[in-house]
Structure formats: structure tokens, C-alpha cells
Design a protein around this nucleic acid. Structure first.
Lengths: 101, 101
DNA sequence: ATTGCTTATCGCAAATTTACGATTAATATT
DNA sequence: AATATTAATCGTAAATTTGCGATAAGCAAT
């Protein structure tokens, strides 16, 4: 048996920044967020048409962005409209700003 | 056999931002960078004393930060002095800034 | 040449991430 | 109720990441 690879706690801000950075740490997710940013407000699974990856993979990336709190989905049957989560976006922005001085 | 999981190319800025974000996507690496930032300029393997992980793991994280271009090491025998790579730091800063508007 | 100090690398194990196709779930329309 | 559309989830495979101890490498001083 190996040791448990458990999480070690750092300062809350450090953990939060790392969490946001991790969510941003894949070009597909950056691309998605840029699309959502440009689209004045929101967007849907037209993302799948714009990205060179499969529907299920796009869905997975959306889930991660949602888990990180950077986006949110709004039911607009039969579609889902995804938007930037402005609240957390602002928090992330500030965290990165003060990190880089 | 499975498909090859090869990289798909996005815009250079998107790739660059994702690369920096990925490097920042772990609390230990954020902690290291914060220490290097505070220490006016630089630091060494006293990092190991300040972080709750082993020497080899710290070394690994330093390597990743170096590969991402965020830090650089200067031989100061028998130690190594690590510093923020100011050039790339600036580039990363700008990329994050314009990403968040 | 040997010793001592510091840091990198190796070898391994576990966990996580990325990706896909296939299937399921949800919902509106017919 | 049946159908169509959209998006999430499941199952699987491959790759990568994270972590450690042990060992090697680099360099100064003896």
C-alpha cells in the first residue's frame, strides 16, 4: 500500500486561485470561455459545432467549468444556455490580479 | 486500440494562456510563486522547509514551473537560487488581464 | 581523492484528466 | 403515447499528474 495522496491545505486564497487556474488549464476550456465572453452574454451547445471535439467531451469540459464556478447553465428547453458566472468570474479576476501584483 | 489523444491546436494565445494556467493549477505551485514574489527577488530550497511536502516533490513542481517559463534557476553553489522569470511573468500577466477584460 | 551539502532524477504507485462512442435523461412537439 | 432534439452520463482506454523514498549528480572544501 502507498500513502494516501491526500490534500494538504494551503491558505484559502491559494487554494481558490489554484482551483480557478486548474479549470483554465486546458485550451478547450479557455476557448469555451472566450466564446461565452464574446457572445455578449451566453451561448449553448453550438459550442459543439465550433469546437473540434465530440459532444460528450464538450459536455465534460462544461461540467468542469461549472464545478469550478466559472459558468452556469440555464434551462431553455430543449437547449441549455450557458453563461459566465459573473460573481465568481469577478472573484477569479481579482485573485489573478492581486497574484500578479 | 484507442484513438491517439493527440493535441488539437487552438489560437496561440489560447494555448499560451492554458499553459500558464495549468502551471498555476496546483496550490503548491501557487504557494511557491507567492514565496518567490514576496522574497523581494529570489529564494532557494528553503522552499522545502516551508512546504509540507518532500524534497523530491518540491523539485518536481519547480521543474514544471521552469518548463512553463514562470521561474528560472541560477546556480549559486552548492545551492540554486530560484527567481520569477520576469519576462514571461509579464506575458502571463497580460494574457490573464486581457482574458478577464 | 574524499566528504558533505544541495538538488535533480529514477522507479514506482495511485489518482486524475482527457477523449470517445453509446446510452440515457429531459423536455417540447406532434 | 410517440417522436425528435438536446445535453448529460456511463463505460472504457490512454495519458498525465502527483507523491514518495532512494539514488544519482553537481560542486566546494577539505
Amino acid at each position: 500500500m502507498k500513502r494516501s495522496l491526500e490534500q494538504i491545505a494551503y491558505e484559502p486564497d491559494t487554494e481558490a486561485l489554484a482551483k480557478y487556474a486548474k479549470a483554465l488549464g486546458h485550451p478547450t476550456r479557455i476557448a469555451i470561455l472566450k466564446l461565452l465572453e464574446n457572445q455578449s452574454c451566453c451561448f449553448t451547445g453550438d459550442l459543439v459545432d465550433l469546437l473540434p471535439i465530440s459532444q460528450s467531451t464538450v459536455s465534460q469540459h462544461l461540467k468542469e467549468l461549472k464545478n469550478a464556478g466559472l459558468i452556469q447553465g440555464e434551462l431553455k428547453p430543449p437547449k441549455i444556455k450557458y453563461c459566465i458566472n459573473q460573481e465568481n468570474w469577478k472573484i477569479a479576476k481579482v485573485l489573478f490580479q492581486q497574484f500578479f501584483d
